[in-house]
Amino acid sequence: MTTKDVLNELESDFAMLPTWEDRYQYIIDLGKALPALPEDDRKDENLVRGCQSRVWLVPSIVDGKIRLRADSDAIIVRGLVALVLKVYDNRTPEDILSSPVSEFDRLGLLQHLSPNRANGLASMVSNIARVAEIARAAEVHRTTSVPASDGSISTGSTTATTTTTTTTTTPAPSTSSDAQYPLPTRDAIIDALKTVYDPEIPIDIYDLGLIYEVRVSTDGTVHILMTLTTPNCPSAQQLPSEVEQAARSVPGVIDVTVEITFDPPWDKTMMSESALFQIGLF
């Protein structure tokens, strides 16, 4: 199933609902059927801005697909949330980005929503699109690159092109890099990550607690599991690529993969003591 398939199905469902009562009852029933978010997830960090009633959205990226859980305290909005999840949950970033909120126009629904509601729906979908952008960016950065013969590190934009370059220009990349550098240490990676700063908080991302996991494999591949302060932060899109570049700059690193997760979502308690001290909370 793709977003388009679901939208097509919904379109024919809605076509069979002639009156506003039918359409609203359909949405209300969807709202009643949506599983409730646990109390822990109904927190302010997960609130979608721009909604009149409260809407919580908890996105995550699993196996390259966007997973969504969401809830609202009002049942009609809950139904709209369920509709949005039907369309966008468990889809690839590309698929999500190909179906903007305007696709919902087809359901003949938006003109029945108050401007407030329509805005809320739009901001929920735009939050999802942002997560999809981040996931797509992270996907692109999950690339194989190797040290060029002069010892400097090349960063390919996609796996395919890098591999092609490699085979033609450096005959035996892995052995030469093994010879040049010892395996990078986890601490060296962390030191490099400490040079990256959150765009909105003057604290490096490691002290901020955005890095959940740093794994260095014996083949020189580094895997970083990280989160963002909020999925709703537009400026956060560049962070994964900065993280990837910082890790790559460590001698001995052959490849870097950056994985974004919002599970668990970041909160202030994840800051290191020095970070808390700097922002005056310690």
Partner: peptide, 21 residues
């Protein structure tokens, strides 16, 4: 058990303007 804004939305469909919030 019913959110005020849900009532407001449905009343509006009946042409009835009330305030919720």
């Amino acid at each position: 058990g019913i959110h005020a804004s849900d009532l407001g939305t449905l009343l509006d469909q009946h042409g009835i303007a009330v305030r919720t919030g």
